[in-house]
Design a binder for these strands. Structure first.
Lengths: 340, 340
DNA sequence: CTTGCATCCTTAAACGTTTAAGCATATTTT
DNA sequence: AAAATATGCTTAAACGTTTAAGGATGCAAG
């Protein structure tokens, strides 16, 4: 049972394929197709259950109506959520999504970009990995539309969707300060990626603004690739020093989860011994015996915006880049304790 | 800067496109291409940074080297993990993955199938929704290769990858019995999907085999679409009756998470007041104050198997269907308490 | 009766590949 | 020397669409 093509319909209707194409793409008016025959063609198409061959159409039009999505890891619920909203929004616009996971690795990300481009995606939505500027500049040189999401490179003129990471971090730390915490630590990824830098900056400036010690000693980092070991070390350092930290601000949900696992292991009581606050929400934070206060990123909004901006770039190539920065919200729960 | 095509290379080298194609697809031998010119062609291709147009290739070959993946919801980490392993395994075989989320809705799933087929995917990996048998049979009638994963329909002759849900559930309940629990409840989705039925059957038969009350009263269901309300009702019913349940077995991770949220809200202590066990692992279960004992599905293995079976079906159309059933493992933690 | 203009439809090229078939030319075999 | 084979390349069709251009017919206007 071969697939039905325009030619089959044309033969059945005794007309040329051109006519069939005009009718089935609703160009009857422009092409002045007779009412009778149009009806007949539609009828036959329905009866044969004609499904247009998207690939042929793409080849002709040079557009695939496909978006390439590169995230760090699709199995991380944060990126899963992003993927989901992008999927939904893309579908609303008759686009489909091909995805790939970069594991925060620039080389992998580069491979992925190439694979996706060979598949003729019309544009890309990317959570760029550290060190991937070069790739992105190449995309720009090739005039491939793309939008960065979650992170971006401040000195690259590219469209991006981000949240106000600086303010978000500041809110988090100020919340801890309001709760009377004195020695506030932070654990972030060891990366130069701008969103993380901004969170660090928010942390440090909030501390300074309130006369807290903002030395380096309370800001720890962990490698994405050695999360577990580095996390344990970081927490041990924060908690074993003479001036033991009484609060930890995690820069992302994956850090928070890994960190809380170890904190549980060590039997540290939240919030009495230690206050916890983090970026990003996830089920795990709800279920923690002491629900974790967090900085919420409006993921749905970000995903939608990314698709919108990308489609604009695709359809209006001279539109110019767009920067969208959305505010975060602090969702207060119990992990920072009461004022003390 | 237009994309470089075979023709551009051919022009530059002063040969026909055919020759270029032969060389760049490594068919020099069969096509008896001269060594000199082959080298020259490769050189030019490299210099022009030629990237083959996958779409044109697909149109010609009738194969897109693309797999369609339909899951219930890509933002659910369980499906995110599946997607990730499928992505990796597909990439190893030079395939890419287009995905869509069905939200357990047969109509949505049908739309998705159509979208993906129009994109000429070579095959599909599907977590079928309830009531989607008809769609699948249509796929069979059209000779579209597909593999079911996670669930399947026992009276449909289609390839599938599943775990032994019956045994998995049985193990879970037997563990509770060994721990001395007397009134073991179960909360499942309200669905006729076979994997859930099997888990229910495992639950019931384990109870019977050990002389426990296996009446209907302790087996509750919740609708996927009204999870929160139904879950609260189910738990209230299990815990408010005269013969209060002393253990709950959740049929999936999403049920467990929703359930534990409410259990936390009600302030019920695990494992003393209530033992908890569930299918599927997720970070949230690790972080719970009392780490949750669960039945592990070997997701990586399942994803790999799904890709392998699908590619076999694509490449050897007369191979016949394949059923793969993998064992689960019980991962014991603290949520079922000590023997009592 | 021509001319012009609608109306309705067909032709054919194009998108970028792949690949069977064919055509020279050179080399070997008989 | 003729025939057979080998070598190295080109031609052209095909995949399923889209769409500009053109052809044929009918009809109204001059």
């Amino acid at each position: 049972m071969k697939k039905v093509s325009l030619k089959d319909i044309a033969t059945a209707a005794g007309v040329s394929t051109a006519l069939v194409s005009y009718v089935l793409t609703n160009k009857e008016k422009e092409a002045r197709v007779g009412e009778e025959i149009a009806k007949k063609i539609r009828e036959i198409a329905r009866k044969l259950n004609y499904q247009p061959n998207h690939i042929a159409r793409s080849l002709k039009s040079g557009r695939s109506f496909t978006i390439g999505l590169i995230v760090a890891d699709i199995s991380n619920p944060f990126f899963g959520h992003i993927a989901r909203t992008i999927e939904d929004e893309a579908k609303r616009n008759n686009y489909t999504v091909i995805f790939g996971s970069s594991d925060e690795n620039a080389a992998k990300s580069g491979d992925l970009v190439n694979v996706l481009l060979n598949r003729q995606v019309d544009g890309l939505i990317i959570t760029p990995a550290e060190g991937s500027e070069q790739q992105l500049r190449q995309l720009q040189a090739q005039n491939i539309p793309f939008v960065l999401i979650d992170r971006f490179f401040p000195d690259m003129a590219a469209s991006y969707i981000t949240v106000d990471n600086y303010q978000g971090a500041k809110k988090a730390v100020e919340h801890l300060i309001r709760k009377g915490r004195q020695r506030i630590g932070m654990i972030a990824y060891k990366t130069t990626l701008h969103h993380i830098s901004e969170r660090k900056r928010g942390y440090q400036e909030a501390l300074q603004a309130h006369g807290h010690d903002a030395g380096r000693s309370l800001l720890k980092t962990a490698r994405y690739s050695h999360l577990k070991e580095d996390m344990q070390l970081a927490i041990d350092q924060l908690l074993n020093s003479r001036h033991r930290a009484d609060a930890i601000f995690f820069a992302t949900n994956s850090l928070a989860i890994e960190g809380l696992k170890y904190i549980n292991e060590r039997g540290i009581r939240i919030p009495d011994e230690l206050a916890i606050i983090t970026f990003d929400e996830t089920d795990a934070l709800d279920l923690f015996y002491c629900p974790v206060t967090f900085v919420r990123q409006p993921i749905a909004e970000m995903g939608k915006a990314a698709v919108r901006v990308l489609l604009e770039q695709i359809n209006q190539p001279h539109k110019g880049i767009e920067h969208i920065c959305i505010d975060t919200t602090l969702v207060v729960r119990k992990s920072c304790g009461k004022r003390r």
